[in-house]
């Protein structure tokens, strides 16, 4: 008798658990979206200009470079690795495409630039995928090496495009299509494409599997090294796209223009909710994460704060976002570590 009661109690416990789990799942998967919307509402209320089309499209344009890189890095991170070389690679590819523009023409410059980017991605991919070295250290080494190569290439000089009027190269950074800036188009089109790759193709599924459990993936016939290799190619190609935007916008380049981007990009990816452990995350999350960074900056500027105020807010927001995520998975706010 008592046992039956206990059993009944247990099953109702379970039902409550399930509904609690549902709420938690929604918060876990959509929490960052909810926070994002709250953000937008708060900023809209405090500034008239904030919600205007012009302002919003400005933010999109501003985040397009970091965002485009972040898309590629997201795929690397879901695959269970890091890519710290993207900042240096952005410097290198931007310098390359700008410098070659006047030497071999825009088409050739773009082709060579992407080839160089993919070569760097391939080196990362070989070392992390096939040689199975730690990705943080490999890409840290590549960060240093590529920075060196860039400086050797330019001899320490900045580069620029001499005839800025007579080239269609301005298209990628300065033109508009259907009222929307081309950088925004590049960012969003790449986002949609990579989202489809991640969710609708077998390659995307393999990326999640390899990031979630590389050993079990190998035991299931997934060729881990190839998958990891490909994620680095994608990351490098995305960085190449960002270089296209940056080079075309500035029509010139400093040789350290991408310095520090690797960690800012990662901030956007993390803010969106992609776990550094690999195996989970998504492209839309990263888009939102990057937009949050952009809107914090924009909103605070509109409200009259100095531009570095965004950094302080970003500090708090990153930690809060990840904390809430971790806490909801743990089921309690604080750790039990003594």
């Amino acid at each position: 008798m008592a046992k039956a009661d206990a059993q009944a109690g247990r099953s109702s416990d379970r039902q409550r658990l399930i509904s609690g789990e549902n709420v938690r799942r929604i918060l876990q998967t959509q929490g960052i979206l909810i926070a994002f919307i709250l953000f937008l509402v708060a900023f809209s209320l405090s500034s008239d200009r904030f919600a205007s089309f012009d302002n919003v499209s400005t933010v999109f344009r501003q985040v397009s470079i970091i965002g485009t890189i972040a898309l590629g890095v997201t795929i690397v991170v879901i695959g269970g690795n890091l890519d710290l070389s993207v900042g240096s690679l952005l410097s290198f590819t931007t310098v390359l495409v700008v410098d070659l523009h006047d030497k071999i023409g825009p088409t050739g410059a773009i082709l060579v630039m992407f080839a160089a980017a993919l070569a760097v991605g391939a080196v990362n991919g070989l070392l992390v995928g096939f040689a199975r070295l730690n990705s943080l250290i490999v890409t840290l080494g590549m960060l240093s090496a590529i920075q060196g190569v860039t400086l050797i290439y330019t001899g320490g000089q900045n580069v620029d495009i001499v005839d800025q009027e007579g080239t269609w190269f301005t298209f990628f950074g300065r033109d508009f299509l259907l009222g929307i800036a081309v950088p925004t188009w590049i960012f969003l089109v790449l986002a949609v494409a990579l989202h489809i790759v991640l969710t609708r193709t077998t390659f995307g599924r393999r990326v999640f599997a390899v990031g979630g459990n590389p050993t079990a993936s190998a035991f299931s016939g997934v060729r881990r090294a190839r998958v990891v290799f490909s994620t680095y190619l994608i990351s490098a190609a995305a960085t190449g796209c960002a270089a296209l935007i940056l080079g075309s916008r500035v029509m010139g380049s400093q040789n350290n223009v991408g310095q520090g981007y690797e960690l800012l990009v990662l901030a956007g990816v993390i803010l969106g909710g992609t776990s550094l452990l690999g195996g989970s995350g998504s492209i839309p999350k990263t888009v939102i994460g990057v937009l949050i960074l952009g809107f914090i900056q924009n909103g605070l500027l509109l409200m009259g704060y100095p531009y570095y105020a965004q950094w302080l807010v970003t500090w708090v927001v990153i930690i809060l976002a990840v904390w809430l995520d971790v806490a909801s998975k743990r089921g309690r706010l604080f750790t039990t570590t003594s």
Binding site: L263, L264, L266, A267, I270, L276, Y308, A309, Q310, W311, L312, T314, W315, V316, I318, I319, V322, W323, V326, A327, R330, F334, T335, T337
Partner: peptide, 20 residues
């Protein structure tokens, strides 16, 4: 310690914020 958030993320945030 208290939040259980990875040190990489906590100090990445601090890197940005402290510069601010």
């Amino acid at each position: 310690w208290k939040t259980g958030v990875d040190a990489f993320i906590v100090t990445l945030g601090a890197m940005i914020g402290v510069r601010g």
